[in-house]
Design a protein around this nucleic acid. Structure first.
Length: 130
DNA sequence: AGCCTGACTTTGT
DNA sequence: GACAAAGCCAGGC
């Protein structure tokens, strides 16, 4: 999975440069949201992958933490497609009800066993791949 | 202004 | 192979 291409240019600045009218409130979350929203159905990714894509690979925590603020349903963030690098549904407890995250994943064809994604390597989606 | 926390990851013992 | 600790950045209090 080390097929990550070198991102010499931090996506932070790249995406942050996207200011429609000069007035922009891009925060770390915005970048994360954008990436998460791009996760194809039936695929999952890890916090580290997103973080690396953003250029802050040293801080995968921020990604997960950003999701903490993503509790807004209007964001339509498929947070259930975001797991830790082990493919473990670490944040399933934050979905309101335990088991919902797994249920959603299974609904998309992703098998989850014991809170862990089966064939995680196969369903893993690298944001840099898009 | 400063300390604490957090849905992670990596590395060392 | 399992456990412990450090690193990271940004928001909340």
């Amino acid at each position: 999975m080390k097929a990550k291409k070198k991102n010499s240019l931090p996506a932070r600045e790249r995406l942050a440069s996207v200011s429609p009218s000069g007035k922009k409130e891009e925060s770390f979350f915005t970048l994360v949201y954008d990436v998460v929203k791009q996760i194809p159905r039936g695929r999952v990714t890890s916090y580290g992958a997103i973080a690396a894509c953003l250029g802050t690979k040293l801080s995968a925590r921020m990604v997960g933490w950003a999701m903490n603020s993503a509790h807004d349903p209007s964001l339509k963030l498929p947070a259930h497609r975001v797991v830790n690098r082990n493919g473990l549904l670490t944040g399933k407890m934050h979905f309101g009800e335990a088991g919902e995250m797994q249920r959603r994943l299974e609904k998309e064809g992703i098998k989850v066993e014991d809170d862990q994604i089966v064939n995680f390597k196969q369903v893993f989606w690298d944001p840099s791949e898009l």
